[in-house]
Deep mutational scan, measured.
Amino acid sequence: PREAYIVTIEKGKPGQTVTWYQLRADHPKPDSLISEHPTAQEAMDAKKRYED
């Protein structure tokens, strides 16, 4: 089974940042970016789909 994890990042100019959620996995390479999402819920949904 595949495993993934969610990383929170800040995008934008200082003082005007927006939080994004990255879905990452250690396949095919360590810390590979799988997808980016504007909400934590979307990231969790993507994580479930990826791991299923």
Rank of each mutant, 00 (worst) to 15 (best):
P38G: 08
H37R: 00
V18C: 10
K13G: 13
P14V: 10
H27F: 15
P38I: 10
P30T: 08
E51K: 07
E42H: 05
G12V: 05
S32L: 08
K11L: 08
V18M: 10
R2C: 13
E42D: 11
G12S: 05
H27L: 08
Q41W: 11
G12R: 05
G12W: 04
K11H: 07
P1L: 13
I6W: 02
S35P: 00
V7L: 06
K47T: 01
L33T: 05
I9K: 05
G12C: 05
D45H: 09
H37V: 01
I34D: 00
R49Q: 10
P28F: 07
Q22L: 03
T8V: 13
P14T: 11
A25C: 14
E36T: 07
G12P: 03
H37N: 01
D52Y: 12
A4M: 09
Y21K: 00
E51I: 09
K47I: 04
A46L: 01
Y5G: 01
T19Q: 07
Y5M: 04
T19D: 05
R2I: 11
R2H: 11
Y5R: 14
V18L: 08
P14Y: 11
Q22V: 04
M44N: 10
T19N: 06
P30S: 07
I6E: 00
H37Q: 01
K29Q: 13
S32G: 05
D26H: 13
I9V: 14
D52H: 12
K29Y: 15
P28A: 07
L23R: 00
D45A: 13
P28K: 08
E42C: 06
E36P: 00
K13R: 13
T19L: 12
G15E: 06
Q41G: 08
V18N: 08
I6N: 00
P28R: 08
D45P: 00
P1Y: 14
L33D: 01
L33Q: 03
E51V: 08
T8A: 14
P38D: 06
L33R: 03
V7Q: 05
L23T: 02
T39R: 04
V18Q: 12
K47L: 13
P38V: 10
A40Q: 15
Y21V: 01
P38H: 09
A43E: 00
L23V: 13
K47E: 02
K11W: 06
P30Y: 09
D45W: 10
K48F: 09
V18F: 06
A43D: 00
I34W: 02
H37Y: 07
T17E: 12
V18R: 08
T8F: 07
T17S: 11
A46K: 02
S35T: 03
I9R: 04
I6P: 00
Q41V: 09
I6Q: 00
E51L: 11
D52K: 13
P1F: 14
K47F: 05
I6G: 00
V18S: 10
K13M: 14
Q22C: 03
A4S: 09
A4G: 08
K48Y: 08
E36A: 03
H27P: 03
D31A: 13
T17A: 09
V7K: 08
V18P: 02
A40V: 15
S32C: 07
R2L: 12
E3S: 15
V7C: 13
W20C: 08
G15M: 05
L33M: 06
Q16H: 12
E3L: 15
K48R: 12
L33P: 04
A25T: 15
R24S: 02
D45T: 08
I9N: 03
D45M: 11
D26P: 13
A4V: 12
Y21W: 15
A43H: 00
L33Y: 05
T17M: 12
T8D: 04
W20N: 03
I34S: 00
L33H: 03
